[in-house]
C-alpha cells in the first residue's frame, strides 16, 4: 500500500533513549510504525505484526501498531531512530538537511521477516573494516 511516511519524536522514544540506545525499551519505542486502524484492516495486519516499509532508498522491517491519533488514512508515523533512517534519502536539495517528513513509501505485511536488533541491523547494513 502506498503511504506518506512521517517521522518525528515521541515521548516514549525520548524516554526509551534515556534507558540507553541499546536497551529493549528503545527498540520497542522506535522500531514501530503507527498506522491508521482502517489501513491495518485493509492490509490484514494486526497489532504488533511485522510490516516492511520501503522507499526508493531502502527498506526496513518494524512492528505495526495502531495509531492513537487516527484517523489519518494512508499516512504512517515512525519515530526517529536507526530503523527508519535506513529508508531515507541523503539528498538535501542544497540546504544541508535531508527530507525526513512526508516521504512517499510502500508499506506491506512481512510476516516472515524479523525486526532486526540494533547490533544485527548495523552489521547487516554497514561494514566496518
Amino acid at each position: 500500500m502506498k503511504v506518506t511516511l512521517l517521522t518525528g519524536r515521541t515521548l516514549r522514544q525520548g524516554q526509551g533513549k534515556e534507558y540507553g540506545k541499546l536497551s529493549e525499551r528503545y527498540l520497542k519505542s522506535v522500531a514501530v510504525c503507527e498506522m491508521d486502524p482502517d489501513d491495518m484492516k485493509r492490509l490484514g495486519i494486526r497489532e504488533n505484526e511485522n510490516v516492511k516499509i520501503a522507499t526508493n532508498y531502502g527498506s526496513v522491517v518494524v512492528k505495526a501498531v495502531k495509531s492513537l491519533r487516527a484517523p489519518h488514512p494512508s499516512a504512517v508515523f515512525v519515530p526517529y531512530g536507526p530503523w527508519i533512517s535506513l529508508v531515507m534519502s541523503s539528498k538535501t536539495h542544497g540546504t544541508g538537511m535531508p527530507s525526513l517528513k512526508g516521504v512517499t513509501a510502500e508499506v506491506n505485511p512481512a510476516p516472515t521477516e524479523p525486526v532486526l536488533s540494533l547490533p544485527e541491523l548495523l552489521k547487516r547494513h554497514f561494514k566496518k573494516e
Binding site: 536507526p82 533512517s85 547494513h125 554497514f126
Partner: peptide, 17 residues
C-alpha cells in the same frame, strides 16, 4: 551525538568507512 542512528543510510555508509 548519534549520526549512525539518525543520518540517512548512504551518509552513514560513508561515515563508517
Amino acid at each position: 551525538s548519534d549520526p549512525v542512528a539518525h543520518f540517512p543510510k548512504a551518509a552513514v555508509e560513508n561515515l563508517v568507512r
